[in-house]
Nucleic acid binder design. Structure first.
Lengths: 334, 334
DNA sequence: GTGAAAGCGCTAACAT
DNA sequence: ATGTTAGCGCTTTCAC
């Protein structure tokens, strides 16, 4: 590939002049500029951002690390982050940790060694603290998305998981459900803890006694073999009439299991969950959800990150985005 | 951040020795190696891949450019590509062109200037030729995914769009449908042309006359305002009893429009489409689809790409992946 | 087994 | 308005 020296030689100027033309910096005469531009066209010159990054110490690239690229909540978030980055002249590099600590580590290593300017980080869990401290030590700005990490005080865009879960469960209670099961993500993820707390508060306020056996701890990632059979085989009075899933992927796993038992939703069992299904839900409104503004998560997170890159000394800012309770077909009255 | 010189100084060796330790290349005595490793730990050294890339002229990064990050077909493909890349010691950089020529151009520029080792490229349409020729001129290896581009002879992983569409439409005919509408992507995308050809062949073989007014040309990207009202308002004998959507996103748009008209699927109208919905469909089997092995698209595409990076002179290879017809609830018998 | 020198492609700082 | 020099952090080559 052509370098600025190739251009310089052919245009009879110095490399520095070529650099000035490329970056629109410093004074270059109209005539020289045109000549250089013409030669760049001819030789199909493309600036080497690797070399540029090495000297300027900035890449104009920010990284977005999400935990599940097949989850519409995260891909919609990615779209928001992408649009905001582009608007400000930054390029976005996606990474997908797949809810896995070790894949997350791989991506953090890549991010660090590539010297990106900042990271939008949806942590896989509390252990991500290690990775975040790594970023801090290397002085790489980051913003947490969707999930907090205990012990890390930083910029973040979070949803109100406690409130959302509480309101959704309260709504199910209003529909007449008294035995509501919870299928939760792993306890080392902040949103899972908060959604469980919201679930418990809603039950308490309705005077319903908490039944620990109706809580299933699993994982936000695609769970292939999730089964609710042990609940559905209970005696009628012990059997849950509704299940609250702590995220959308879990709701799909629950639905799969329910369907495989030959049961219908909502006739035999109601299902609600956190996070919606983006485009799918819009066309095929089925699940009752506590919906979070995914696009805004990405957009506002990117805004925080770019601010932080400009000014590293500011106080950390936390943004909490509200969620909306949408009751749809999947929850029936008892 | 620490450099190899910082390490070298502290370990009382030369930078070259540090480099040897990092890369496990050349002979370094046990003692020196241990010492260097220890200092690297202490100083939390992270290699600067930007500097390394500048000298070695390779980044060990490949790029995956998809056209819709919210489409499960492409995100599943991304997972396949990611897994295959990781297995071979490459990092993956995602890009999302959003079915837009100009966003695609931005990403191609970034890819070129970052000097990635290769590109897995799902083109936005025939005009992508310009971008691909750009890559060719700069000698960047690439593999086409899902869509061909006329005039570009290269490695590719494609689905059998013609066959899939033909079989799906034939199946709908077998269900008793005679008036089947087609909601298609843009004509400048190879899969849209082929799916239309398959649709037409199936009708011909069944002796059904083609009615041009039952073909709608739109775009694969999320179409907010797609309406099928003009068809549904036709006299009963002219009205389609089924709609074949050329991809999954279009099927959702169709469903949305159908629902807004107060019609039920499949009772009032049947819907089928190309590509399935991944995880959603698995739990909630509704759409009849011509399903493509999305994960394998990514996986095999990455394999082709890494082969190509190793050996640039080989003949171009094309892989055609079969698709599977899955009849589900959304198509009823007439 | 280890080190010194040169250079990857670019830009910042300082000439002219 | 344009050019020269130096150096970003690393590896390649060659010398010891």
């Amino acid at each position: 590939m052509a370098t600025i020296y190739d251009i310089a030689k052919k245009a009879n100027v110095s490399a520095m002049t070529v650099s000035r033309v490329i970056n629109n910096t410093g004074r270059v005469s109209e005539k020289t500029r045109d000549k250089v531009k013409q030669v760049m066209e001819e030789m199909r010159y493309i600036p080497n951002s690797v070399a540029r990054c090495l000297v300027t110490q900035e890449s104009k690239i920010v990284s977005l690390l999400i935990t599940d690229i097949t989850n519409p909540f995260f891909t919609t978030m990615a779209r928001g982050a992408e649009d905001a980055a582009m608007r400000h002249g930054y390029r976005l590099m996606f990474g997908n940790s797949d809810e896995s600590f070790s894949k997350e580590k791989d991506y953090v290593e890549m991010i660090l060694s590539m010297r990106v300017d900042g990271v939008l980080f949806a942590p896989s869990g509390d252990q991500s603290k290690e990775h975040l401290e790594w970023l801090q030590r290397q002085n790489v700005p980051f913003v947490l998305l969707d999930r907090e990490v205990p012990g890390i005080d930083c910029d973040a865009v979070l949803g109100d998981s406690l409130d959302g879960a509480k309101r959704m469960v309260a709504e199910m209670i209003r529909y007449g459900h008294r035995r509501i099961a919870l299928v939760n993500g792993a306890q080392d993820v902040s949103t899972a803890r908060e959604r469980q707390a919201g679930y418990i508060e809603a039950l308490q306020e309705a005077g319903i006694e908490l039944d620990e056996s109706l809580i299933m701890q699993t994982s936000y990632s695609r769970v292939q073999d999730l089964s609710v059979a042990h609940w559905m085989e209970l005696a009628p009075e012990a059997r849950p009439t509704a299940i609250f899933a702590a995220n959308n992927m879990l709701a799909l796993s629950v639905l799969k299991s329910v369907r495989s038992l030959g049961l219908r939703v909502p006739d035999d069992l109601s299902i609600a969950c956190f996070d919606d299904f983006g485009w799918v839900e819009e066309a095929n409104p089925f699940f009752s959800v506590a919906s979070q503004p995914a696009y805004e998560f990405g957009e506002q997170g990117m805004q925080l990150l770019l601010d932080r890159i400009k000014n590293r000394e500011e106080q950390p800012r936390q943004i909490m985005l509200p969620c909306e309770i949408l009751m749809r077909e999947s929850v029936g009255k008892v």
